[in-house]
Each structure stands twice: as C-alpha cells, then as structure tokens.
Computed example of a mutant assay.
Amino acid sequence: MRVVLTCLPFYSHLAPVVLPVARALRRAGHRVAVATAPGMAPELARAGIEHLALPNVLTLAQLLERPEVLTSPGMPGDPEGSARAASARAEAGPLTAAFAGPLAGVFARDLIEACESWQPDLIVRECNEFGGHLAAGRLGVRQAVLDIAPGSASTLPSVRDALNGQRAELGLDEVDDPWYPNRSFVAGFVPPEWYGGDAPPCYRLDEPSGVLDVSLLGLPDDRPLVLAGLGSVAATVVPESQDLLELMITALGRLPCSGVVALGSDPRHWPGSRPEDVRLLEFTPQRLLLESAELFVSHGGFGGVAEAVRTGTPMVVLPLFSDQPGNADRVCALGLGRRLEPGGLDADLLTETCREVLGDNVYRHRASAISRSALACPGLDALAADLALSRTEQLRG
C-alpha cells in the first residue's frame, strides 16, 4: 500500500505523532511519504522519511508575516483580551479559519499535483490539516485521520463553511455536516476515558524517546521534579507568553522542587528571573523528563497533555487558545490536575496551586490510573494494520 501522511508545518504536529505513524507503516511494508511544507525538510531527513514537498505551503513563521493570518488569541481572562480570546475559541479564529480555507486550498492543489506521480492508495491526515481531506475527495482516494487534538476547532460550523468554499473551487459538492472531515477511520492517541463518550480506536505511542542528556543528571534527588513550558506554537503567536513564562519561573523558584522550564529561546538572553533551583533550557526532552516528573505546568497543548497522560504526571494547565481550554477541562474532569486562567494570574496563586497538586496524592493516583489505561492501548504497529484493513474493507464495500 502507498500511503501519504499530511501534516501542518509545525514541529509539534509532525514529530510526536505523524513521524512515529509513518515509521510504523513503513515497518509493515508500506511505502510512505509525508506531505508538508518545504521548510520541514530537515526534520523529515533526520527521520529518514520520504518528503513530498508542497512548494506553496508555508511554515508558521512564514505565515505570521502575512497580515491576513496574523493574529494573537490574547490572554484568556485579561480584561482587554478576554472578549477577543473567547471569540477566537468560539469561532476558530483567523489562523484556524485560514487553515480550513485558502491555506487548505493551497495545500490541496499542491498535493493533488504531487499525487499525480506518487499515486497514493491512502491519505492519512492529522486532524487540523484539511488540504489532505480536500485532495482525497478530489482524487477519490481513501482517507483516515490522526486525532492529535480531540478538542480542536476542526468540527466547528465556521470551519465547515471555510472548507465548503474550497470544495466549490475544486469541483466538490458542499456538505452540511461539520463532522464530515472526520467521517472516516479516526485514530486516537489518548485512552478512551479522555473522550468522555464515544471514543475512536485508541493507540499507544510506544516509540523509544531517545536518551536523556547527561547535563540533566545532576538535578537534586531530595525534591520533586517539576517541568514547565508553553510549547513552540504558543510562544510564537501569543505575545504575552514571556510574561507567563516569568510567572512559571517565579512560582517554581518559591517551591521546594527542582524546576525545569522550556523557554523556546536561548536562555542566555532570558531577561527575567533566574531562581537557583530552576533550570532554564531552550527546549526540554519533555517526554523523557515527564517519566520522572511529579508535576507538569503548561498551556494545555494536546501533545504535552497526551504525554503527561501516558506518563501519569499530574498537571496544572494555563490554557491560552484553540483546544487548550477544552484540554484543561478534561484534565480537571478526570482528576488529573488543576486549571488556572492565565489572564490576571499572579505568582502567588500559581505557586499555591502547584503546591496543592504536588501535596495531594489523589492527583498522582488518578494520573497513574489513566497512564495504565494508556499503556493498555495497542501500539502503532496495530494502527498500521488497522489502516490497511480499513482501506481493504472500503474497497470491498
């Protein structure tokens, strides 16, 4: 079987799920390529995965230079930014609408052209990438979805409307169903409990995470490890992210813990505080450190939340935009941690909330229980087999 996986040109979408699924499909004997922006070539080359470079697809940094998609979701709860942030969450926001509208059309046209020679049997897209959905419809190719963000805006009516505009331009019928892009085989990557209802087949991301750098071996062994950060996308699109990182650093510096904070930039140029027991890094080996961390403080991006679910790490979530408020709500509903609104947040409240979660074993016990559920899910080799089976069943149908 020949499989094209499609991915938005974000490292946080490509590396944690799309590349491991690509490797699993290749282990099963299928020919695999990942279609995304030319700017992602170094990551795909390092992974040894064939790259279908789509010449007109831009990276996030390139997109944010364009006024029609430049937007900040603001800090939820902030008096000046809350209305704008609530609107962005309710109606997907300009960037999400662009990815479902004109940018999806650009992606689809480049992919259709690439597929003329590559001839895929199956297109597998991550759920926030819509060009693969449009291209599969135009080419009559079976498609499947990697649900890397269950609480995303991908099923909002505004997204449906943006997609319908592109469907018309590609000669496809318009659809009324906002869920239509996900009316195919969908694979989840958290345990079924996360969905709180009907769950798709769920799989375990069981690839090895590499080796921890020796520079992190000297962390004290007489206090809990707390990992904190805002990921790569939030730090780019939310101007207030530096203020939120400063709050995290200050709060961890007040706790009897070893703090590790991912800044997303060179720590040598960090203008804020530097508590003695908080280590500042540009990037952290997040998945590896979560194996031994007792608390994860983040913005609630699904990639990090899913990793904390797998490792059984309690959380404090400061949601900013997109699916993050929904992710924070699920963390609370499942008893895995606490949610705080970033707008108006001060270091005292963040410190005390972190202290509470660290001191309450109920959070740890519930996190451990859902981690066991995650470990009971089949691995990615099973997903590769199910993707092949789903295509065979469709052909028979």
Rank of each mutant, 00 (worst) to 15 (best):
G312Q: 07
Q286H: 13
P275L: 11
F302M: 13
D277N: 15
P271C: 00
E291M: 09
D266W: 02
G312V: 07
T250G: 14
E282H: 11
T313H: 05
V297G: 10
L245E: 11
M248Y: 02
G304M: 01
R279G: 12
L280I: 00
G312I: 03
V297R: 10
T311W: 08
R287I: 00
L281N: 05
G259D: 08
A251N: 12
T313V: 04
W270C: 03
C257Y: 11
L288W: 05
H269Q: 11
R279I: 01
V305G: 02
F296K: 02
L247H: 13
F283E: 12
G272H: 04
M248N: 04
G312E: 06
S292H: 14
P271I: 00
G264I: 00
T311I: 02
G300Y: 05
L295W: 00
S265C: 11
L289Y: 08
V309Y: 06
F283S: 14
G301S: 06
V309T: 05
L247A: 13
I249V: 15
P271Y: 01
H299Y: 05
S292I: 08
Q286R: 11
L244N: 08
L290E: 11
F296R: 03
L255F: 13
A251Q: 06
L244D: 08
C257A: 15
S298P: 05
L289M: 14
A306H: 01
F296E: 02
M248F: 09
P256Y: 03
M248A: 07
P256D: 15
T250C: 11
L245Y: 09
E282Q: 15
